[in-house]
Structure formats: structure tokens, C-alpha cells
Write a protein that binds this DNA or RNA. Structure first.
Lengths: 205, 205
DNA sequence: CCTTTTTTGAAACAAACGTTTTATAATTAT
DNA sequence: ATAATTATAAAACGTTTGTTTCAAAAAAGG
């Protein structure tokens, strides 16, 4: 055992391969954390949903906290990929911002659970540096994506409301969390769509 | 015991009074839930902070969930009282809206914990009808408070940006949650103050 | 004072928690 | 085939969980 630890990262002699698909298992775990939150999820919830034994879990992925970290990484990375693909073929920067806003509204008002990143921010990010780092990276990605579009939109004079691209980017992003909260409380798509429409009008004027 | 339950609400014969101040104890419990969340808080956390034994707790207030319900009620009711007092002597409705926004920004960027109502919304409101009802009542209070001001501001032509008071009220309220999230992630007061200033300018224009 | 009723503190409760151990099955290299 | 190594499943680990019990203390009415 000691020998195999020293000659990492690959074990010297292979004996048996892991049976389950780790990425798939993490994706299943993510769904549980998404629904129940970190503290509301038990290891038995996780192993049951993942379809693996706890010994296999601890041998490959690690403990509950490591699994949570990998789950929210999986969540944020999937979302970043989707966002990149979504906007790559739009020529007008303002139209791209509109599309991003409308796509967010659609997700907010049609997904069964609220955003995992936001739930995590309010539940554990304050007291968990490792989690906070992932959340911050996810936030920074959205910020960079949008500020690129905002800058181009200002250059092209598609936005006249303000010249402060950084503030305007913060201002746009700021709406998403409120829409999530509103939908949890009221379950009213129209209220959210109306304020989103107003935000877009404000930018376009 | 059956007899004393029948002749409720007051017991027929008093024997000994509760030693601790129930409102104070609930306030202490609220602080723990505020910091750790519902699932992150244990009964031992609570009894320790409240300075009472669990038997006394169960005899007077009830179980963990009932204590949580009373804690968030205490939170929301305190906040409603403060909001009412804050705005009662302002003549200009737009100035009152500005004051409400600025007071919220101050709280967001100076309190050690993020808003308990928002944390609760994202942690447990979806799956807990009793909690959701309290959260919805709190939300409705803020909504009614602000829509009154927005309507007056539109009447007085202090707001020209839109005639749709309901949408505009949702739009204003929607910012608060995002500011909370932003402050958890970035701890940057200036970013929040700038977007708040921009929101006020948008309304005032 | 004495009886009655209730609160209190400490201990105890079963169940559930996150995690580890152990024995067995499976796989690869020799 | 055999030896070596690892993944797996089931059971067990010691703690901690939310909650209850129980004896003792306290206070009210008779």
C-alpha cells in the first residue's frame, strides 16, 4: 500500500478497474445536492442516487465535502459551456445580451429547482473558502462574458443609458438572483417576464 | 393533564411560572438559525445559545421546526416594524423610495450575515409550506409598502420611466437579493452602491 | 404547612449521521 | 494457475442527531 502511494499518480500495478462512471455518478450527486442543499443531504441519499456503495465513493471521490465540491464544479462548468455555445453566433452585442437575459428567464421559470450556485452561495459560501472560490469563479465567468458584450454594445452605440460598462454589467447580473427568489415565492412567470422586458427596454433606449 | 388541556387557553391552576423570557430566547435562536441555516443548526446549538434546557424548550415553544417558524416570524415582524417607522415622516414618495433603497444597501453591506428571509427562501421555502407562507407574507408587506410609494410618485409625476406601478415595484424589489448575493461573493460595497445609485437615477429621470 | 401542579436539569433514548472496516469478488501480471 | 492488487458490498464504527424521560426543585392554592 505504501509503495503504490509513493509511485503516484498512476498505480504501479493495475489489478481491477473502477466499475462506475465517475462523471455520471457526480452528476447524480449534484441532483441530490441541488434539491436538498448541502446540509440537507445525507450520505445515504447520495450513495442511493449514485447507485454505488459508500466504500467505493470514499475510495474514488472522497468524503461528502469533496463530493459536494465536485458537484458544484460540474454544475458551473456545464453552465459555462452552455453559455459559450449559446452566444457564439450572434452579431449584435445588444441582441446577445437580450438573448442571455431571456434564456435566463426561461431557465428560472421552467426548471424545477432554483439555481444551485445561488442556493450554495446563501447556504454555505460564507463559511467555506473552497466553495466560495468556485462560486466566485463562476460569477467572474458570467461577468467577463457580459462585460465583453456590454463594451461592444457601447462602442456600437447600441446602449446609450450609461458609459460605465462595469457598473452596467453588475446591474444586469444583479437581476437574475431576484428573479429566482421571486419565482420560488410567487411561481408567477409573467411578473418575471415583465421586469425582464423592462430591463431590456432600459438598456435599448 | 387531560383536564388542563380541555379548559384551555389558561390552565385552571397555576403552579410554577416559566423562568426564561420566551421572546428573548426566540431572538437568541434566531441568531443561530441566521448564521447556520435551518439544517446546519442543531438543537444543542440552540439550547446553548438560548441558555435553556431542551425539556423547557419542548414544554413551551415546541420542536425544532416550531422554533424555526417562530424565529423567522420574529425576524420578519421586527423588520416590518422598522420599515414602517423609517418612512413615516417623508413627504416626497420618490425620496421615500430612495431612502428605502439606500437603507437596504447600508444593511446589506454592513450586517455580518446576509438576510435571513432570503437564506430561508433558498434553503427550505420550496419544500416547507408553513415557512413559505411566512416568507410570502414578508414579501407582500414590502411589496405593498413600495407600491404605495410608487403609485404616489407616479401621481406626483416624480417617476416618468413607466406607468406600470406593479411592474416597477417588482423591478425595484428585485435588486435587493442580487445585492446580497454580490456582497457574499465579492464583499465590495462600492459595486453595490454604484448599481443602487444607477437604479435611483433610472427612477428619477 | 401541605398538596398539587409545573418547570427544570441531567440523563437517556432510538435513530440517523458521516465514515471505516472487513471479507469477498474481480481483475491483471507473472 | 497463481500471486498480487484493488474494487466492491455489507456490516459495523463511534458520534451526533432530535426528542423524551425522570427525579428533583419551585411555586401556587387550600
Amino acid at each position: 500500500m505504501i509503495v503504490s502511494k509513493i509511485c503516484l499518480p498512476l498505480p504501479c500495478i493495475m489489478a481491477r478497474n473502477v466499475e462506475f462512471d465517475e462523471q455520471l455518478a457526480i452528476s447524480k450527486a449534484m441532483d441530490v445536492f441541488w434539491k436538498k442543499g448541502y446540509n440537507g443531504t445525507t450520505m445515504r441519499d447520495l450513495t442511493e442516487a449514485m447507485g454505488i456503495n459508500s466504500s467505493s465513493l470514499y475510495n474514488t471521490i472522497g468524503d461528502k465535502h469533496q463530493l459536494f465540491v465536485k458537484s458544484i464544479k460540474h454544475y458551473t462548468e456545464s453552465r459555462m459551456d452552455a453559455a459559450k455555445k449559446q452566444l457564439q453566433q450572434i452579431t449584435s452585442p445588444l441582441k446577445a445580451i437580450e438573448k442571455y437575459i431571456n434564456a435566463s428567464v426561461y431557465t428560472i421559470t421552467n426548471e424545477p429547482n432554483s439555481c444551485l450556485a445561488i442556493k450554495t452561495t446563501f447556504e454555505v459560501a460564507t463559511g467555506d473558502a473552497e466553495v466560495q472560490k468556485i462560486i466566485r469563479a463562476d460569477s467572474e465567468f458570467t461577468y467577463q462574458l457580459l462585460i465583453g458584450l456590454v463594451n461592444k454594445a457601447i462602442e456600437k452605440k447600441e446602449i446609450k443609458v450609461s458609459q460605465d460598462a462595469e457598473m452596467l454589467t453588475d446591474y444586469i447580473i444583479n437581476h437574475f438572483t431576484g428573479w429566482h427568489e421571486s419565482f420560488i415565492i410567487h411561481r408567477d412567470k409573467t411578473r418575471i417576464k415583465k421586469t425582464a422586458q423592462f430591463l431590456i427596454e432600459q438598456l435599448s433606449q
